[in-house]
Every structure is written in C-alpha cells, then in structure tokens.
Design a protein around this nucleic acid. Structure first.
Lengths: 342, 342
DNA sequence: ATCATTTTCCAAAGCGCTTTGGATAAACTT
DNA sequence: AAGTTTATCCAAAGCGCTTTGGAAAATGAT
C-alpha cells in the first residue's frame, strides 16, 4: 500500500492525502479524518526511503564505532550510552545507524556518512586530545555532538562531558583526607581526553598536598579487568606499595579487588579502592548500598541528553554550540577507610 | 556533486556513468576508466537514499532492542554481538540500524521496519520459548536470522545457537565428577529459550546421577552482579549449602565470587564456580589463564556469523533456512576443585 | 560495398514521496 | 449581484538514482 493507491482509494490526490497525514492546514478537518482513518485501516505507512529522498532528511543519527585490537570502543559503557541515546531518538521518531569500521577507515567513514546522506547528524565518541574528527565534521557541515571534549580543538562544537577533572580531584582528596599518601591510579588510555583530565585532577590534588606523583603508581591502558588486576599486583609488589587505588571504571576496579583479595588483604582496611562508576545497568555498583566508593555519573543519561542535543541542533532549535558539564557525585561505599597505620 | 553533474562534466549520459560505476558490461573499458577516475577526483558518492529508492534495497540491517526495566537487552553481551555483526556488515557494504523501543512496542517496531522499508532484514535477539516475533516476520516476508532458538516455534527460520543444553550438561557433570552433589544454579530469566535449555542440561545431568533438583539451589533472574551475589548469600545460608555454583554468565559469577569471599570461603576449595563465558572483549575471563572454569563460546563470533547468514539470505545465496549449533568449549580455570569433605 | 552483428551509448520512465503554483468552489463584502 | 477573499483540493515537477528499450556507431561477414 503506497500513497498513490491510498489516494486512488479515497478519490483524493496524493497531495491532499500527504498533507492530511502530515498535519498541513490546507485540508478540511473532515477529509483529514477520512484520510487518517483509511490510512489506519489499510495499514499505510509512508516509505522511509522515498520520504527521505523528497525531504532531504533521513531521521537517523550515525554512530561510528572504530574496531581495532588497539582500542576497543564497543564495550559495556558504549552499550549503555547507546541505550540512552536510542531511547531519546525513539521518542522523536529518529533511529540510530551504527557503522562499525576499521580503525584506519574512521575518517573516511565520516566523510561517507556526509557525502552519501545517510544520516542527519552524528555523535562523536571517545574524543582525543586534539581530535581530527571535529574540524572534519565542521567542514563537512554535518551536525554533531561530542560525548566528552577535545581539549586542544579550536573549532566550536557542542559537547556534553562529565567533569572528570573535578571528579578525580575530589576522589583523590577524599583518600588524602583519610590519611592515604600512596595512591595508585589505574587510568584509561591517556590519548583519550577524559583520561587526561582525570590524571590532571589526580595530579593536582596530590601536588596541592605536596605529594609528588610516583610513576610507579600510575598506569594507563585499556580499561579491562585483567589490566586492573595485573597493575595492582605490580603495585602491591613495590617496596612501598599503595594503600589506595583509584580505578577509571568499575571493570578494572574488579581486577583491583581480585588482586587485593588474592593477597589476603582486606578492601577498605588494607587497601582502599575508589572507582569511576558509569552507573551501568548490567554491572551496577551493588544493589542498594554501593560496593565501591565511587564517583558516579550515568552514561545512559549522558546518551539520552547527547541525543536530545543533537536532534535540537538538527531541527534548528539550537543554533549556537551547547555545552554541558556534569558533576559526578561521590558516593561512599564499603571499599574505603582510613589509611592503615604501619 | 551528483550523478547528473558528473555525467554533464564527462559529456556522458547518466545511464553510462551509472553503469560504468556499477560494473555493468555495456560500457567500454576506456570510458569506465575515465568515469571512475572522474568520480574519484570529484569525490562523487551516490546518494544512498536515492539509490535505495531506485533499487528497493537499503543495504542495512535492523536490530530491535526492547528497553524495559523488566528485562535489560542492552548489555555487555549485546554490545559484543553488535561488534561482531557490525564487522561482517561493514565487510559487505551494509550497516546497522538500531531501534530502541519500549517493550510494549516491540511487535509494532518490526511491522514498521517491514512496511516502511527501512531495512533488508533483521536479527532477532533473545528469543523466548514460543516467540511471536518469528511467525510475524515470516508473514511480513522480512528476512531474519535468530540468535538463539525458539523451542516451540513451528515456522521454519534460520538460527545460530550455542548448544546451551550440552554446555550445562557438561559443566554439571564436571562438578559431579569432582564429587559435588549440592550444585547451585544462577540462571538467566527462564522465559528466555537459552535459559530454559541451560536448566534442562543441568537437570538432566543431575538426574542421571540420581540427584533431585533442589528448588532452593536454582534461581533465575536478570544476569547482573548483585543477583549472583544475593542468591549466593541465600544459598550459603542454607542448612545444607551448595559446594558449587554454576552461573549463567561471567557477570553474575562475579557476584557469586563476592558472596563466597565475603564469607571467608575459598573459591575452588570451599566453593567451586563454573560460569558461562561469552568471551566478552571487555570482561575477559582472565588474561592468559582463565579465572573461572567456564563453558566458553564467543558471542562476538556469533554476531559475525549471524550477520553473514542474514546477508546470504538477503542476497539469495541461501534459500533454505540455515541452522548452526555451536558447541561451547569447557575451559578449566582456578575456580573449581574437588568437593570439600566434611 | 552491403548487410548483419555487436558494441557503446542515450532518452526517458520509474522508485514513492513532498511541495510549488495554481484552479475551483465556497464564503464573505459592499 | 458582482467582486474579493478564503478554504479545499489538484496536476505536475522535483529528490538522485537505476534500468528498460532503443538508436547510433563500430565491427565483422559476405
């Protein structure tokens, strides 16, 4: 059932039927009713491809996911973000187009999205310090919103970010206040902007108390469980081991916990742990009371809001770049306690 | 730059240019070269929407993700599947269209995908015992591949599934052979077909040794960490607690471990754990040697293969339904040992 | 040199929708 | 009653591509 068939059936022109269905005023209320009724009973739904060709709009939003063994974008955090974004898309009639591409083809993928007109806009994931994607998208004229920020980028753009610097600053201070001075950091890959900001918050807090950052206590890599485990083991082997560890995500924190418990040490007593909790639905930080003391900010909410920001931009509701900086909350769980006295 | 502009530029008709670019034989090799060259230098890429309107093909594949607080589809397992599927799509020029919908609108979402011609086919996630989506898609004539199976479904369809029954049968036998007789099961929601089959494997193995299933030892719910934790606590409180627990995924297994260690019990000695490991990239079962003894099957590989099966079907390379039953491998880790003697 | 083939190219008709620029009928003015 | 406005509706022209049915040019056969 297409528009022509439906309009033939109703004895109306395609114009009128189209207008009736799309809520234009140039059609009598009675006819509109007749049309919508017929559309429903005959189960008519306009062909998306034709509609999109005619309007120039696709009602879909792109997400480019680089896939490499180097750095893994498709992860739990990503899927929660997707869930949030997808939810906001659905509410406004959009959907999501995901392109999984080889690391090397990422730039080309954005160019292709723009030149073939597959999407009305894109969300940029995992920005790096000086991310080449942002000027590219700007130049391509493809609307975009960045989840995170790119510190050294000069082109204006909309972003939504968690205040990673302040989150880690507060987490570090929290541990310092408990008397810890040897504080390990299990960070994400530091080409990532968020990881750099986190390290900055950590460093600043330590140095404000006159503590120099010990390179043996800071590690940056893919945020997996085994990484947290391995690096914690290494740190516990030091002659002057840390009494607290900050992990960049719940997942490496699980590895930290494993390494600590394996040594027969008690969490929250011998070793304190704080992690950054993205409030993942599948891996909640405990049910009810939190397991880990954590800086928390829901990545799902971020996805939802990024989606809204992008759709607003696409629809011309906002014209200037929009920035949102969210503060993470510091929730106290069972994984932290005063520094052990030797 | 569109086709007309390009052909004007070349002094050729749109027909010839189109044919040259799409590899049709009715064009001189010299002209084809001239055309492809011009297309490259002028950075011409055919508009997807127009192409798709003309061909009737969209080169995209749908994934419908129901979102509810009841049952959470968007999770780590899902994202690894997506990564695999997306990879195979990219290789053959497809991409992925994800619709996040409210639980109640799921059926309608499939109908809409079909009637508006947004996709060439869909992957069905998380089939239930007698899943209404399969006959619906069959009737809509929309190609699909099921990740998993629907036991009570009579319409023919293509699927790829892990042999969940045999995996749990072997895991249970492995524990029985070690002398365990009180074996707990932390299962997924048992409306899900895979969970039902797992329970079946567990039950059959126990009963073959004359052991009756104890309802106090089997629990089914959303596969989260807190669920694994809570139920393990409950079971350890029993007068006759389990000496081994089988978890349906690595994530609840983490909860099981937490509950066990909290009691001061040793894993692999006081309590053995086996889990189903989907070989998630972000949450690997250890690096190198596995932490948990596990039945393992890569969900990412499954995504890859499901994508291929669906594209083969869409392109008419396969005409009959295809079935693939993968055997999970049983890898022995540090979480299992002989049943403790009382 | 003539006719039959084959090769190479083109004009034009869709694909299913939106939207512009009227036309017609109805309602309102004076 | 005639002129003016307004409310309804329509024919037709795109949107940018593919593809059908020829035509023109080049090639081969006689």
């Amino acid at each position: 059932m297409n528009l022509r068939e439906l309009s033939d059936l109703l004895g109306l022109s395609q114009t009128t039927v189209s207008r009736a269905l799309n809520g234009y005023p140039e059609v009598k209320e009675a006819t509109r009713l007749r049309v919508t009724e017929a559309a429903r009973t005959h189960n008519y739904h306009p062909n998306t491809r034709a509609k999109s060709l005619a309007t120039g709009r696709t009602m879909s939003i792109g997400h480019v996911i680089p896939l490499s063994n180097q750095h893994e974008m498709v992860n739990c955090v990503f899927s929660d973000f997707i869930a949030g974004a997808g939810e906001s898309y659905a509410r406004r009639g959009y959907d999501m187009r995901v392109s999984v591409v080889d690391d090397a083809d990422e730039i080309e993928a954005y160019e292709r999205l723009a030149s073939t007109g597959k999407v009305d806009g894109v969300i940029v994931h995992g920005p790096r310090l000086d991310d080449e994607r942002l000027p590219l998208l700007h130049q391509l004229g493809l609307p975009f919103v960045v989840h995170g920020r790119s510190s050294d980028c000069t082109t204006p753009y909309s972003w939504l970010d968690v205040n990673n610097r302040s989150a880690l600053h507060r987490a570090t201070n929290f541990l310092l206040d408990l008397g810890h001075t040897r504080i390990g950091l299990i960070n994400g890959i530091e080409e990532m902007d968020f990881a750099m900001r986190r390290r900055d918050g950590y460093t600043t807090a330590l140095e404000a108390r006159g503590i120099k950052v010990d390179p043996d206590l800071t590690h940056a890599f893919e945020m997996t469980e085994p990484f947290g485990y391995a690096k914690t083991r290494d740190m516990l082997d030091l002659s002057d081991p840390p009494t607290a560890v900050i992990a960049s995500s719940l997942i490496p924190a699980l590895g930290v916990r494993r390494a600590v418990e394996e040594r027969g040490l008690t969490i929250g007593k011998d070793v304190s742990i704080i992690c950054f909790d993205d409030a993942l639905s599948y891996l909640p930080n405990g049910a009810g009371s939190p397991i880990f003391t954590a800086t928390r900010s829901s990545v799902r909410d971020a996805g939802r809001r990024c989606g809204e920001m992008l759709m607003d931009q696409i629809e011309g509701r906002t014209t200037e770049p929009v920035h949102e900086l969210w503060e993470a909350e510091l929730v106290v769980g069972q994984s932290t306690g005063p520094a052990p006295t030797r």
